[in-house]
Amino acid sequence: MTQERHKHDPIEAALRAGHYSEASPAETPTTGDLAAWIEAPDESATHVEALLARDADLRSVAVDLRLHGFTDGPTVGPDLRGRVHALMPAPPPVLARIGAWAAAAAAAILLAIGGWHLGSGDADVRSLGTDTVAAAAFGVQDGSDEYSALLLGAQGTVQ
């Protein structure tokens, strides 16, 4: 009779079915948390134990590792090893790396020089022309002697 009662016990039936009410989201353990628990089960790691209580597959992994430990696999062929090695690409040869950096640096310097030349040349022409018009029309000019000389020269040229 005792066994019959337990056989039809709805609580035990729910436990066997893993029928749990919805629980509030718990802190999700990291791989490191799980690995640490597998090496030394810790009752205070409630987030790990709560996850294991819910996840039958993960629990199976943890229990299997706890009870039976690790087993090494068969020898692995060169093809599979090569596939896995190739996931981390090898760096280019040293000279090639230096050459690439040198080329990049030279290009940057050339661009800087070219940009400076273009910028400084345009500025002189633009400002001279603009200020010549300003000087002729409004008598406005920069106070520096050199600048005035340029302006007078331009005005003469304009005429």
């Binding site: 709805p10 609580i11 039936a13 729910a14 436990l15 079915a17 029928h19 749990y20 009410s21 629980a23 009752e43 409630t46 987030h47 790990v48 134990e49 709560a50 294991l52 209580a53 819910r54 629990r59």
Partner: peptide
């Protein structure tokens, strides 16, 4: 599953496990 659901808030994580 039919029947009662186990209320998890009643049990500690260790008890559930």
């Amino acid at each position: 599953p039919t029947g009662p659901a186990i209320p998890t808030h009643l049990l500690t994580a260790r008890q559930q496990l």
